[in-house]
Nucleic acid binder design. Structure first.
Length: 482
RNA sequence: GGCGUUGUAGCCAAGUGGUAAGGCAAGGCUCUGCAAAAGCCUCAUCCGGCGGUUCGAAUCCGCCCAACGCCUCCA
């Protein structure tokens, strides 16, 4: 039994899928107008683990995650209709669609590094203009929208449930609304479904209301319904787009007469030095910069998983350093198991098997309870201590194999922490292996002759190159430092 | 101003009525020519503060303090 925190009810609910073995899940992707940052990475990893958990529990998940490649107005009052993609296009002297394409692929690349599984479907907003127009027309026909000079607006007060998801009351919102609203709106709360395109606006499509482009929000309503159908299971996204984006999605879809998502899951924000990392604050770190300047992607993935997806997570150099070491232990225990299993004695270890059973139980319980990854990770580290002790005690092969299976299934499969990225260094693996063998042999001769200054000197020089040596009872091992 | 969240060891972070998970850092020990790795041990009488409820609270209630988020583009 899996329980999930549903933002609609603001409480944990037992998850009941709409069909027995299949789950439809939609995750709001970014508007692709600039580099993806640590926040995108966190949301991606959070829902990737959730998806993997459903799969582990036997569900087939259709995971739809969009890319919004239509630029949206930066300020409602701006009649120039400057949108973010358009702005960026001017800045980089590219076509808007070149900007969208460039950052979309960068986003895919950055997420892939984090071991995030590809969505089943990745719909683009520009590929679904017809669906969006249809939905807008439907909203007009049903009295939830109206047209003014080529713009179409959603009439918020016509949709009683507006505000339910984010816990806002329409009358409270009224006061907070900006002064400089577009005068043709009937109500300041109303939001755009379709915008008239000024002559200089490059991204434009023909519609029943003239040439224009869709508003932000409508693409997700249309694409989620198209690929997941009515009443689909899960809609997910960052907490910061709960309002107004998700609120608007519900209003549009249900206003058009369709049942929308049953469970709404929101991932919390990242802080740097206690402050939310965000574009407007300018304190964000792009994923690409992180990878080149801070640590490899898997360290980041572990850092994310160490906090619960609904908690605010602090990212600091200390957090990253801690994750780096912890990841090393998780890799090392797996490597050691792989190394030792072929030569292990036949037999079992009752202590180890009990520890494995307990770890599996605790891991499953933790993830079943609203995807509590920090708690699951605690179970993994508890087991790791047991495994290392068992290895030292010479535990039997079949128990060690069970332990290895645990790491492959849970740490690798569910948490996705054993993902490796392709890089050119890997092509040289054989060469490296051979060279290291030679170096180790040479050092071995020094050691046999008790010429420790030479053998230590060799080790220091290798260390300086990022290769560390470990002398063990069964010979010298080496590894590349991360 | 409206709505909401959080405050747990040096840092990160679970726990949400039964007497403080886990990771990092730090210190000691075992092993070792040395080092590393690994293991073992130590590391919050206490969970922002003050009251209350209870046999019992970090966990529930009240007040206070502090920080943060949404209400505007954001994952």
């Amino acid at each position: 039994m899996i329980t999930v925190f549903n933002s609609l009810s603001r409480s944990k609910e037992v998850f009941v899928p709409s069909s027995p073995n299949h789950i439809g899940m939609y995750l709001c992707g970014p508007t692709v107008y600039s580099e993806s940052h640590l926040g995108h990475g966190r949301t991606g990893v959070s829902f990737d683990v959730i998806r993997r958990w459903f799969e582990y529990r036997g569900f087939t998940v259709r995971f739809v995650s969009n890319v919004t490649d239509v630029g949206h107005i930066t300020t409602e009052s701006d009649d120039e209709g400057v949108d973010r993609i358009g702005q960026r296009a001017k800045l980089e002297q590219l076509e808007p669609m070149e900007i969208a394409d460039k950052y979309m692929w960068a986003y895919f690349r950055d997420l892939e590094q984090l071991g995030i599984k590809k969505p089943s479907i990745t719909p683009r907003a520009t590929g679904h203009i017809l669906e969006q127009i249809e939905m807008v027309q439907r909203l007009i026909d049903r009295g939830h929208a109206y047209e003014r000079d080529g713009n179409v607006y959603f009439r918020v007060r016509s949709f009683a449930a507006y505000g339910q998801l984010s816990g806002k009351k329409i009358d409270d919102l009224e006061h907070g609304t900006r002064e400089d609203v577009r005068e043709e709106k009937d109500d300041p709360l109303d939001f755009a479904l379709w915008k008239f395109a000024e002559p200089e606006h490059i991204m434009r499509w023909n519609s029943p209301w003239g040439e224009g482009f869709p508003g932000w929000h409508i693409e997700c309503s249309a694409m989620a319904l198209k690929y997941l159908g009515e009443g689909f299971d899960i809609h997910a996204g960052g907490l910061d787009i709960q309002f107004p984006h998700h609120e608007a999605e519900i209003a549009q879809a249900e206003g058009a007469g369709y049942k929308f998502a049953k469970y709404w899951l929101h991932g919390n924000m990242l802080t740097i030095g206690g402050e939310k990392m965000s574009k407007s604050k300018g304190n964000y770190i792009s994923l690409a910069d992180f990878y080149t300047q801070k640590a490899e992607p898997m360290v980041l993935r572990l850092a994310y998983i160490q906090s619960h997806y609904r908690s605010i997570a602090e990212v600091s150099d200390d957090t990253i350093e801690g994750a780096k070491t912890a990841l090393g232990r998780l890799r090392e225990v797996k490597r050691e198991l792989e190394r030792r299993i072929p030569e292990a004695n036949e037999g079992t270890s009752a202590t180890l098997e009990q520890a494995i059973a307990r770890a599996i139980h605790e891991f499953e319980t933790a993830l079943d309870d609203d995807f509590n990854t920090p708690k699951a990770l605690a179970a993994v580290f508890d087991l790791t201590r047991e495994v290392n002790a068992a290895l030292a005690a010479g535990a039997g092969k079949s128990s060690l194999e069970k332990a290895l299976h645990f790491y492959n299934t849970f740490v690798g499969g569910v948490l996705g922490l054993y993902h490796t990225t392709q890089n050119s260094a890997r092509d040289d693996a054989e060469l490296l292996k051979g060279l290291m063998q030679i170096a180790i042999e040479a050092r071995g001769v020094y050691r046999q002759n008790r010429d420790f200054s030479r053998s230590d000197g060799l080790r220091e020089r290798l260390k300086a190159l990022g290769v560390s040596l470990e002398d063990t009872a069964s010979g010298t091992r080496w590894k590349l430092e991360s």
